[in-house]
Design a binder for these strands. Structure first.
Length: 106
DNA sequence: CGTATGACGAGCC
DNA sequence: AGGCTCGCCATAC
């Protein structure tokens, strides 16, 4: 059910919005749900283009290793970490998250 | 319209 | 176990 009218990024955003509260997903997972398996890069790039006031829970998207990708801006990393902790998700000192516990099954 | 880039993933050394 | 390289494709210039 992909709306071709929507841009690839828009499709990714819609998929990310489906992540329930207190759960996290990976770029590859989002890419697969968005209908473009293997294109995890596009997911990351799409989220990269998001604004701070977006309604997309971009902070719930992490890499396949279960860790927060360290963005060029350390401030953004810390913001994501705090957002995740606000949802009851435990973030390791090494910016790692237990996907077995918080991973979204879809 | 061709080149470069990029919040990744998986494989290989 | 950890670090490096290649691949995939949409967007930017």
């Amino acid at each position: 059910m992909n709306n071709n009218r929507l841009s690839t990024y828009q499709t990714i955003y819609e998929t990310v919005r489906r992540i329930p509260w207190g759960r996290v997903s990976t770029y590859g997972q989002i890419a697969g749900l968005a209908g473009m398996p293997g294109q995890a890069r596009l997911v990351g790039y799409a989220l990269h283009s998001l604004a701070e006031d977006t309604d997309v829970p971009w902070h719930r998207v992490i890499n396949a290793k279960g860790g927060i990708s360290q963005l060029p801006d350390p401030d953004a990393c810390l913001r994501q970490k705090m957002l995740l902790q606000s949802e009851g998700i435990r973030v390791d000192e090494k910016w790692r998250i237990n996907l077995e516990l918080y991973g979204w099954k879809g």
